[in-house]
Design a protein around this nucleic acid. Structure first.
Length: 642
DNA sequence: GGGAGAGACGTTTTT
DNA sequence: CGTCTCTCCC
């Protein structure tokens, strides 16, 4: 199918696909068809003979990357099979590993799993003011890199920050690893200091989706890859919801300043949502006073008005049961389960809702954060597997020798590390010597004992006939803690060459950190508002619309200006949520949006979710409807009691 | 190094 | 209300 098929040259979608300007910015609201326009642009490039390898389509998440690939394959554009959307993170890792960058910087691109941070924190806490302080310092370190602060004139870390960074880097170097938050900055630094690097002119065309969610370092990487490229960025400042990773809506707003002469295009017709949803979405986002250029969405009358309901329940139990009953009823009425999307910003609503749906025999899939490695047993087995594949995996060894001890046996491990740094021995070799008595160090009784067990377990694993037996041994059948990771490991094993340990551990790690998203949706999906970005669904339910949860209160110590920005981002989050609704003008059922909230929940739940109840009675916290419900404006329906 | 008890604080989102 | 973290003491 030619790229311009069914495209009217007078429409912005055509211009986005057709523009040959070196720089193009597209600001496009939810449901206005930006992915469609992007896809056509890529198709045009491929049809005009651009090599797939010269095109870099950057997407924000893995889901979006797979989505783009699938749609291009569906269009049958030439060479589309070789064209993959990538996340910046995966691109950075690939390029860092491909080059001898490691030699130059002394760093190894082996990212640390979340759970592997624990021993790092304990190793640093004694010298840097305790666990909490170390966590804070680490976040500040990553934040400074994400914002490229070191490139700002006059930036100077405090003495305490500098001391911490030196120790952190020494730890990471010694353990041959990298923080996840360092991957992009390291890549940025490599590109920045190597103007002649091949990567800087590897791409002739760069397309960036969800640009508003990139932080400074990520934007900088795009700039550094753009030496010889036509660049098209696409996004929407009204959907910028990733300030926690230091993205800011001003990035896309101010992009034109740095790219004079760029084409500036926009898409405003909301082809996705019913008209009433468009109307309340416009009313809501209008409350964001910091927007320099308001861009209301145009409703499409052909989409129909839609079915919008706002329901208040008495307490959280009734809300959970009420929503579960609504879903069950809709399915009984013939709505496919895969057409229903349930969004809630907190596990306190999400998990009981999930359980209520499952209990009611509704096919449901929960998309809350990866659970494979949430249990200690699973973490231990996974670390053991890493060490089984590579005895020199220093992070895995550090984790395993410390896991049983108070503060991860920091005192004893410090002696081992000092010994290694003085002699050049690897931790594995030093531990082996300690174990045999060839070496003796103070305070190491505990870790040597742990090491003995580890060696025994590894010997047991080596005695097994193949990898599948190893998986079976590490993640035994029928155990709750390791059920998820067992299933995943078995799937990965099927795809891997006979007993290729390295490939197995690599693919398993990928599968854990970047889970596959099913293409065929047959279940009710339940997830956070953040995860819902990019999705759309004929029935969208947002539960838990209460003040304190949505919006969440600002962190302590923010300036009034920062508090205002926080509130606006929370509002954008709700905006993203309500604009997931897809009109179904051809079916007999209208696009449906249901917003629910409740008046009470147990104080214990409220506290554990981060709500500090202003009032409480008989152990229940008194809750109030989200202020955003009011802000939906006069076209919103009146709330009803459920 | 490790255990007992007092005290602080609580969440959510991605690669 | 629970859980994690820190301090004190052996």
């Amino acid at each position: 199918m030619p790229w311009s098929d069914d495209l009217n040259p007078a429409t912005p979608a055509y211009q986005i696909a057709a523009s040959t300007n070196q720089r193009v910015r597209v600001v496009a609201g939810p449901g206005t068809g930006k992915s469609f326009a992007m896809k056509r642009r890529v198709a045009r490039l491929l049809e005009s003979g651009v090599a797939p390898g010269a095109i870099l389509p950057v997407t924000f998440t893995r889901v979006a990357a797979e989505d783009l690939h699938r749609e291009l394959v569906g269009m049958g554009a030439p060479g589309c099979d070789d064209l993959e959307g990538v996340t910046l993170h995966s691109l950075a890792l690939r390029m860092l590993m491909r080059n001898h960058v490691l030699g130059a910087t002394g760093r190894v691109p082996r990212p640390l799993n979340e759970f592997e941070l624990e021993p790092l924190i304990c190793d640093l806490m004694a010298a840097h003011g305790g666990k909490k302080e170390v966590k804070k310092l680490r976040m500040a370190y990553e934040a400074a890199w994400a914002r490229l602060q070191h490139q700002q004139p006059g930036y100077a870390p405090s003495a305490a920050d500098a001391a911490f960074q030196a120790d952190l880097l020494a730890w990471l170097r010694f353990h041959e690893a990298m923080l996840i938050g360092e991957v992009i900055p390291q890549f940025h630094q490599y590109l920045h200091s190597n103007p002649a690097a091949a990567e800087r002119s590897e791409f002739a065309h760069i397309l960036v989706d969800e640009y508003q969610d990139l932080n400074r370092a990520e934007q900088g990487v795009i700039e550094l890859l753009s030496d010889a490229a036509e660049v098209c960025i696409v996004g929407d400042d009204d959907q910028s919801i990733y300030s926690f990773k230091h993205a800011h809506p001003d990035g896309i707003r101010e992009w034109l300043n740095a790219n004079a002469g760029a084409d500036d295009l926009g898409l405003d017709d909301c082809r996705r949502c019913p008209t009433r949803v468009v109307s309340i979405a416009n009313s809501l986002i209008d409350h964001n006073a910091l927007r320099p250029v308001p861009r209301p969405l145009n409703p499409m009358p052909a989409n129909g008005e839609g079915d919008v309901r706002i329901i208040q329940y008495h307490d959280i139990t009734q809300e959970v049961n009420g929503v579960a009953a609504l879903v069950a009823q809709m399915i009984a009425d013939g709505v496919p389960a895969g057409d229903i999307l349930v969004l809630t910003q907190s596990r306190a609503f999400g998990m009981p809702l999930y359980e209520a749906l499952v209990a009611g025999d509704v096919p449901t899939k929960s998309y809350y954060a990866e659970t494979e490695l949430s249990r200690d047993d699973a973490q231990r087995a996974f670390a053991l597997l890493k060490l089984f594949v590579n005895r020199q995996d220093r992070v895995a060894l550090r984790w395993l020798v410390g896991v049983n001890g108070n503060n991860w046996h920091a005192a004893g491990y410090r002696r081992v590390r000092e010994h290694c740094e003085n002699t050049g021995a690897s931790p594995w070799d030093a531990m082996t010597q300690l174990e045999s008595g060839a070496l003796s160090l103070a305070y190491t009784t505990g870790i040597v004992e742990s090491f003995r067990e580890i060696v025994q377990e590894l010997d047991d694993l080596e005695a097994l006939p193949d990898l599948s037996a190893v998986v079976d041994h590490l993640f035994p059948d029928g155990q709750d803690a390791t059920r998820d990771i067992r299933a995943l490991a078995l799937t990965v094993l099927e795809e891997v060459e006979e007993d290729d340990r390295e490939a197995f551990i690599r693919d398993l790690s990928t599968a854990i950190s970047q889970p596959e998203i099913p293409t065929e949706i047959e279940d009710v999906r339940i997830m956070s508002l953040h995860k819902s970005k990019g999705l759309s669904s004929p029935v969208t339910i947002i539960a838990g619309c209460v003040q304190g949860l949505l919006p969440r209160p600002p962190d302590d110590g923010l300036t009034p200006a920062e508090q205002a920005q926080h509130l606006e981002e929370q509002r954008r989050l709700f905006y993203v949520g309500i604009t997931r609704v897809k009109a179904a003008p051809l079916d007999d059922k209208p696009g449906t949006l249901i917003l629910t909230y409740c008046q009470e929940m147990p104080v214990r739940d409220a506290l554990s979710v981060g709500i500090t109840p202003a009032q409480q009675q008989y152990g229940s916290a008194i809750l109030h409807a989200s202020q955003f419900i009011q802000e939906l404006g006069p076209t919103a329906p009146n709330p009803i009691a459920g």
